[in-house]
């Protein structure tokens, strides 16, 4: 594993299905994982890599965390201990929006989910750009139940646009907006809201 890949490692899979996976990391870095980020988890003994969009990041508490939160003025060491040393993993959930296999991207659910403890990497800017060139991942996001689909869609498209040179960002978002219009044809208020969130 090269230095870059080390850098991009954002945790390991704890549970999953073909629809997506949940990863955990001890201490998050400020930039990863973030809502709407693209990430990759190895599956099928390395033969495929599932592409996920992060839609939920959560940290569980326990009674000690609650006690420390209301304590009058906990010491700096206690705060550092609670935030860094205690084994409270940061969990993030990613929605599967495609997979990479045999040198090509596929815009459908993966044939098999990753295994528990599979490594999860952030996708590089180039990879995000290549994957999002086709907009065929949009239906998988739009069709996902019980998650904030519209916000996720807007965040993912903004991430995708940001990996492109300045001059093609707007055309890209316009193209994405049109694709969404086709998919959300009958739901005008929702479409308007989405287009609004895509504007810089």
């Amino acid at each position: 594993m090269g230095m870059d890949e080390q850098e991009a490692l954002i945790g390991r899979v704890t549970r999953c299905s073909t629809r997506g996976f949940v990863g955990a990391v001890h201490i998050p870095k400020p930039e990863v994982p973030t809502f709407g980020d693209f990430c990759l988890a190895e599956a099928q003994e390395g033969r495929s890599r599932v592409i996920g969009v992060i839609y939920d990041i959560s940290i569980q508490d326990d009674e000690l965390a609650r006690q420390m939160a209301i304590a009058k003025d906990p010491t700096r060491e206690q705060l550092a201990d609670t935030q860094r040393a205690r084994l409270v993993p940061v969990e993030y959930a990613a929605l599967a929006v495609g997979y990479h296999k045999d040198g090509a991207y596929h815009y459908t659910l993966p044939p098999q989910p990753p295994l528990t403890m599979a490594t999860i990497h952030a996708m590089s800017a180039q990879e995000v750009r290549d994957f999002t060139e086709r907009l065929d991942f949009l239906p998988l996001i739009l069709g996902a139940p019980q998650i904030p689909v519209d916000d996720l869609l807007a965040a993912a498209l903004r991430t995708a646009a940001a990996t492109r040179p300045e001059e093609v960002r707007r055309p890209y978002l316009v193209r994405a907006g049109r694709a969404c219009a086709r998919l959300l044809g009958r739901d005008l208020p929702r479409l308007e809201n989405l287009i609004h969130s895509l504007q810089p």
Partner: peptide
């Protein structure tokens, strides 16, 4: 075991 260096601001070692 835990080692808290009180007053240092450092993360305790566990």
């Amino acid at each position: 075991g835990i080692h808290i260096h009180h007053g240092s601001g450092r993360t305790p070692e566990t």
